[in-house]
Nucleic acid binder design. Structure first.
Length: 880
RNA sequence: GCCGGAGUGGCGGAAUUGGUAGACGCAAGGGACUUAAAAUCCCUCGUCCCCAAAGGGCGUGCCGGUUCAAAUCCGGCCUCCGGCACCA
C-alpha cells in the first residue's frame, strides 16, 4: 500500500475493474426487490457541468446505497440527443448535427465514467438514433388512431430567434425557454397531443404523488388549473346567433353590463363591419399592454333577465380559454373594471361584503348600494359576499347564488355548468431539422395519410443543407419530401415538421427497461410467472415482463426547472402507454428529488466585464490589473463565467473528493454554494482516512468483530467507547439516508467517526480488533459517497471481496445506547447545571439527583418548588 | 397581484416529536514540528458585562401571544428566493 493518497491512480484502477467485469449490469430477478434509480439524462452539449456532477453524484449514492441494502438496482443513463444546439453548430461551424452530437456523447460518457458512476451502460439510449425515435413515431401513430394526436390551425407561440413554435409550457416570462427571445403569436397549422384528455386524471392523481415535493405537485396543479363554472348563451339581438361565454361567477350575472369576444372569435368577423379596426385589435391580441376594445354596434340579451347589453371585441380576452368570450362585470372583476372605465361603460354593484358596515365600507360602496354606480368606485370588489339588485336572488350568499342562478340559466336552455382547465393541448410541431420526423404523408387525392407502422422509422435524411435562414432544412430536401401515398400510390409529400424534443424524454425511462437496442412495444410476450402480470385487457398486446418488473421509477432526481414541462409530459405519456397495455402504473416516478442549483459568486472587472475565477489574481483582473468586484452568488452559468469545470476538479482532486464535497456542502434539495476551501476540506478528510488505514493496515488481520460487546472483561473502557461510536455512526448514517437522503449530516457523522478513530490509541489485541472494526465500518459507510478510495482501502486491509458486494452494516441498539446521559437541570427554563447520570433511571431518582446538585441547592434554598418537569433522558426543569 | 418556500455565528450548515441553540466543515487567531515553508497535529472561536476566573445578561429577520419550556406552535409585519400571471 502506498503511503500517499493518489486519487488518479486509485480511481482509474477501480473504474477499469468495474468496467472489465461489467459489474453494474442488472437483469430482472423476481427473487429480489427491485429499485429503479434514475437521474435526468443530459443533453449532449459538449461537456458536463457542475449541475450534472451534483445530480449524478446524488443518484449514484442512492443507487450504491440501495444495492448494499440488497435491492436489485437498475441505474441507467442515456442521451437527450435531439435539439437545437446541434443544429446551430451545424449552421455556425458546418459540422453535421449527427457528428457533433455523437462526438459530444463520446466525450461526456468518458466524463461520467471518470466520476465513477455506477451505470448499466447496456441500457443506454440515444434519442437521435432511428431505433429510438422510431418509437416516437410509433406512439404518434397510436395516438393518432385514438384521436390523441391531431392537427389544427391556431395562434401559436413563435420564437423568432429559434424560428420555431413553442408549447405554452416552454414560454417563460413571455420569452423562449431556451434563448429568452420575446415570443410572438403566429397562426400556423400544427400537430397537437391531446394532453387535455387526461387533465382531470393528471390533476386528481397529484394527490397520490406522496413522494414528490409538495411544491412541484402544487405547480402541476396550478398549471392544470381546474375551475368550475357556467357556460351561458347571450342571444345576439337582431341576428340568429348566440354568444356562449364562460364564467366562474354566475352570482354576478345580474351585474354584467357588456360582453367581450376574443379578436379571433369566429363570430368577430360577422359582428364587426370595420375590418381595419378588427385587425388592429388582433395585432394587440395577447399582449400585456393596455386593454383595447372595439364596439361591434350590436347588442346581446342577458340570459338571466334578457337585458340588452353591448358586445365588444377585446384584446385581453383569450380564444384558447373557456369559450373565447366573456361576460363583463366591472363592479366585480378588476379587468372588466379597467375596461369599463376606459370606454365609459356602466358599472353595477350586485355583491356586497357580508359584514357591514363595521369595519368601514370598501371604496366601491361609496356610490351607494346596487344600481348603476358609475362613479366613486376605485376598484372592483372581487370577493364573495351577499347579492343585491339581483331580482329574486338578492340577499343570497355568493356560493348559494352561483348554484341557483346557474340552475336557472340551465333551466331556460341557455347554458350548462362546466369544468374548465388552463391546461392546453401540447403543440409538438417544430420547424426544425434535428428532431423526430412526424410520420404523416399528404396525398393530393387521399389527403392526410399516416405512414404505415411497418414502414417505420421515417428516417431523418442526412444530406441536407444548413443555411440558418428560412424554415426547416427538411422542407428543402426533395428526396425527403417527395414520396408516394401509402393508400393510392399517387404523388404525395411528407410532413416536414419534426417533434418537440420533450417527446423523446417523455418515455426514455421506459425505454431503459428493455435494454440497449431492444426497445419493442409490438411483440409483448405472454405473462410469465416470475413477473407481475401485465395489465393488457382483452385484445391488447400482452405487455412486457421487463416493464412490469422495473416500472415505476422508485427514485427520480433532477432539476426543479422541469417541474411542469418534462414531468407533466412524462405523466401524460405514461398514461398513454398504460392505456396501450404495457405497464401497470399510470405514474412514472414514485419519488422525486429536485436538487438545488450549484451557485458561485460572480466576479466582474470594470473594464472586461464578467471574469472566470482563473482570470483573477489577488483580487485583480489579470488583463488590466483593475480591482475586481465581487458580485452576488448566482447559479453557475457560462454567461456570467462563475463556473468550475468538472474536468479541472477531477484532475486536481479526483472524483471521490468532487462527489464528497457536492454532497456535504448542502442537503440535496437546497442550492449549493461553491467553495474552493470546502473542496480542500473534503480532500483533507479523505487523506486523513487514507492515513489511518495506512497506519493500521497490518493490525488485526482477518478479523471481523461484529460480536464484540462493550465493557466485557477483555475490552478497555476507551475501546468500548469507540465501539459504541461506531455503532452510533451506523445508526446515524443509515437514518440520514432513509430520511430524505440527508447526505450532509451523514457525512458529518462519518467525520465524527474519523475524529474518534484518529485519536484512538490501541493498547491491547482487543483494542486493535475494535479499531479495525471501526475502520472497516467507516469504509462501508463511505463507499456510496466516495467509492474508489473505499474499494482501495478495503482491499488494503486484506479483504478479498469488493466493497460493492458487501452488505450495508447494521447497528446493535444495545451497543449504540449510551450508559450515561448528560442531564440538563433548568430553573424556570434556564440551564443552571449539567450532570452525568446513568441512563434509564426512574423519574423519582432523576428528580432527587437534580435537587441534590449543590449548584441547584444554592439557588432553590428557602424557595418553594412549584413544579418539576422531567423529560426522560434529557432534562429537568424546576419551577420556583 | 395570486400561490409557495426560506430567513440560525465571519461563512456553508446542524438541531428527527415543543425540551441543552450553533453538530460537522470552512475561515480566522494562537501553539507544536521544521533551517524555512508546505503538509500534519494540538488549542481557542455567537455576543456583551467582568483584569481574570466563577458567574451573569443578550441571542435563531422584526413585534406580540400560547407554554414550566419556542429556531420549532399561533397572530401581525419586514426582507429575499421560486412559480403563475389579463385563465374570466
Amino acid at each position: 500500500m502506498e503511503e500517499r493518497y493518489d486519487p488518479q491512480k486509485v480511481e482509474l484502477k477501480w473504474q477499469k475493474y468495474w468496467a472489465e467485469r461489467n459489474i453494474f449490469k442488472t437483469e430482472p430477478d423476481a427473487s429480489k426487490k427491485k429499485f429503479y434509480c434514475l437521474e435526468m439524462f443530459p443533453y449532449p452539449s459538449g461537456k458536463i457541468h457542475m449541475g450534472h456532477v451534483r445530480n449524478y453524484a446524488i443518484g449514484d449514492v442512492i443507487a450504491r446505497y440501495k444495492r448494499m441494502r440488497g435491492f436489485n438496482v437498475i441505474h441507467p443513463m442515456g442521451w437527450d440527443a435531439f435539439g437545437m444546439p446541434a443544429e446551430n453548430a451545424a449552421i455556425k461551424e458546418g459540422i453535421h448535427p449527427a457528428k457533433w452530437t455523437y462526438e459530444n456523447i463520446a466525450y461526456m460518457k468518458k466524463q461520467l465514467n471518470r466520476m465513477g458512476l455506477s451505470y448499466d451502460w447496456d441500457r443506454e439510449v440515444t434519442t437521435c438514433s432511428p431505433d429510438y425515435y422510431k418509437w416516437n413515431q410509433w406512439f404518434f401513430l397510436k395516438m393518432y388512431e385514438k384521436g390523441l394526436a391531431y392537427r389544427k390551425s391556431s395562434f401559436v407561440n413563435w420564437c423568432p430567434s429559434c424560428m420555431t413554435v413553442l408549447a405554452n409550457e416552454q414560454v417563460i416570462d413571455n420569452g423562449c425557454w431556451r434563448c429568452d427571445t420575446a415570443v410572438i403569436k403566429k397562426e400556423l397549422e400544427q400537430w397537437f397531443f391531446r394532453i387535455t384528455h387526461y387533465a382531470e386524471d393528471l390533476l386528481k392523481a397529484c394527490d397520490e404523488l406522496k413522494g414528490w415535493p409538495e411544491k412541484v405537485v402544487l405547480m402541476q396543479k396550478n398549471w392544470i388549473g381546474k375551475s368550475e363554472g357556467l357556460e351561458a348563451d347571450f342571444k345576439v339581438i337582431g341576428m340568429d346567433e348566440r354568444i356562449r361565454i364562460f364564467t366562474t361567477r354566475a352570482d354576478t350575472l345580474f351585474g354584467a353590463t357588456f360582453i367581450c369576444l376574443a379578436p379571433t372569435h369566429p363570430l368577430a368577423e360577422k359582428l364587426v363591419s370595420d375590418k381595419k379596426s378588427l385587425n388592429n385589435i388582433r395585432e394587440h391580441y395577447g399582449k400585456e399592454d393596455e386593454k383595447l376594445g372595439l364596439f361591434t354596434e350590436r347588442y346581446a340579451a342577458n340570459p338571466v333577465n334578457d337585458e340588452k347589453i353591448p358586445i365588444y371585441i377585446a384584446n385581453f380576452v383569450l380564444m384558447e380559454y373557456g369559450t373565447g368570450a366573456i361576460m363583463s362585470v366591472p363592479a366585480h372583476d378588476q379587468r372588466d373594471f379597467e375596461f369599463a372605465k376606459k370606454y365609459n361603460l356602466p358599472i353595477r354593484v350586485v355583491v356586497i361584503p357580508e359584514q357591514q358596515p363595521n369595519p368601514p365600507l370598501p371604496p366601491f360602496a361609496k356610490g351607494g348600494r346596487g344600481g348603476i354606480t358609475n362613479f366613486g368606485l376605485e376598484a372592483a370588489f372581487e370577493e364573495d359576499g351577499v347579492l343585491v339588485d339581483s331580482g329574486s336572488y338578492s340577499r343570497l350568499k355568493s356560493d348559494a347564488a352561483r348554484i341557483e342562478i346557474a340552475e336557472f340559466v340551465e333551466g331556460r336552455g341557455l347554458g350548462k355548468r362546466v369544468i374548465n382547465y388552463k391546461l392546453r393541448d401540447w403543440g409538438i410541431s417544430r420547424q426544425r431539422y434535428w428532431g423526430t420526423p412526424i410520420p404523416i404523408i399528404y396525398c393530393e387525392k387521399c389527403g392526410l395519410v399516416p405512414v404505415p407502422e411497418n414502414e417505420l422509422p421515417v428516417i431523418l435524411p442526412e444530406d441536407v443543407k444548413f443555411t440558418g435562414t428560412g424554415g426547416s432544412p427538411l422542407a428543402d430536401s426533395e428526396k425527403f419530401i417527395n414520396t408516394s401515398c401509402p393508400k393510392c400510390n399517387g404523388k404525395a409529400r411528407r410532413e416536414t415538421d419534426t417533434m418537440d424534443t420533450f417527446v423523446d424524454s417523455s418515455w426514455y425511462f421506459i425505454a431503459y427497461c428493455f435494454g440497449k437496442g431492444k426497445i419493442d412495444f409490438t411483440s409483448g410476450t405472454e405473462t410469465s410467472p416470475p413477473f407481475n402480470p401485465p395489465i393488457g385487457k382483452g385484445g391488447q398486446r400482452g405487455g412486457s415482463p421487463a416493464l412490469s418488473y422495473w416500472m415505476p421509477v422508485d427514485q427520480y432526481i433532477g432539476g426543479v426547472e422541469h417541474a411542469v414541462l418534462h414531468l407533466l409530459y412524462s405523466r401524460f405519456f405514461t398514461r398513454v402507454i398504460k392505456d396501450l397495455g404495457f405497464i401497470n402504473s399510470p405514474e412514472p416516478f414514485a419519488n422525486l428529488l429536485t436538487q438545488g442549483m450549484v451557485c458561485k459568486e460572480t466576479l466582474k472587472c470594470p473594464e472586461h466585464g464578467w471574469l472566470f475565477p482563473e482570470d483573477v489574481k489577488n483580487e485583480k483582473c489579470v488583463k488590466c490589473g483593475k480591482a475586481v468586484e465581487r458580485g452576488r452568488v448566482e447559479k453557475m452559468s457560462k454567461s456570467k463565467k462563475n463556473v468550475i469545470d468538472p474536468d479541472y476538479l477531477i484532475n486536481k482532486y479526483g472524483a471521490d473528493t468532487s462527489r464528497l464535497f457536492s454532497l456535504f456542502a448542502a442537503p440535496p434539495e437546497r442550492d449549493l454554494e461553491w467553495s474552493d476551501q470546502g473542496v480542500d476540506g473534503a480532500y483533507r478528510f479523505l487523506n486523513r482516512i487514507w492515513g489511518i488505514v495506512y497506519k493500521y493496515r497490518r493490525q488485526a488481520p482477518g478479523v471481523r468483530c461484529q460480536k464484540l460487546k462493550p465493557n466485557s472483561s477483555l475490552v478497555t473502557r476507551h475501546s468500548s467507547l469507540l465501539l459504541r461510536k461506531t455503532h452510533q455512526t451506523i445508526k446515524r448514517v443509515t437514518n440520514d439516508m432513509e430520511r430524505e437522503y440527508h447526505f450532509n449530516t451523514a457525512i458529518a457523522a462519518l467525520m465524527e467517526l474519523v475524529n474518534a478513530l484518529s485519536s484512538f490509541e490501541p493498547k491491547s489485541e482487543e483494542d486493535r480488533k475494535i479499531l479495525k472494526f471501526g475502520i472497516e465500518t467507516l469504509l462501508l459507510l463511505l463507499s456510496p459517497f466516495s467509492p474508489h478510495i473505499s474499494e482501495e482501502l478495503w482491499e488494503s486491509l486484506g479483504n478479498k471481496k469488493n466493497i460493492l458486494e458487501q452488505r450495508w452494516p447494521l447497528w446493535d441498539e444495545n451497543i449504540a445506547k449510551e450508559e450515561e446521559i448528560e442531564l440538563v437541570i433548568q430553573i424556570n427554563g434556564k440551564v443552571k447545571a449539567k450532570i452525568m447520570i446513568a441512563a434509564g433511571l426512574a423519574d423519582e431518582e432523576v428528580r432527587g439527583k437534580a435537587l441534590d446538585e449543590p449548584r441547584i441547592q444554592e439557588i432553590i434554598k428557602g424557595k418553594t418548588l412549584k413544579k418539576v418537569f422531567i423529560v426522560k433522558g434529557k432534562l429537568v426543569n424546576i419551577v420556583i
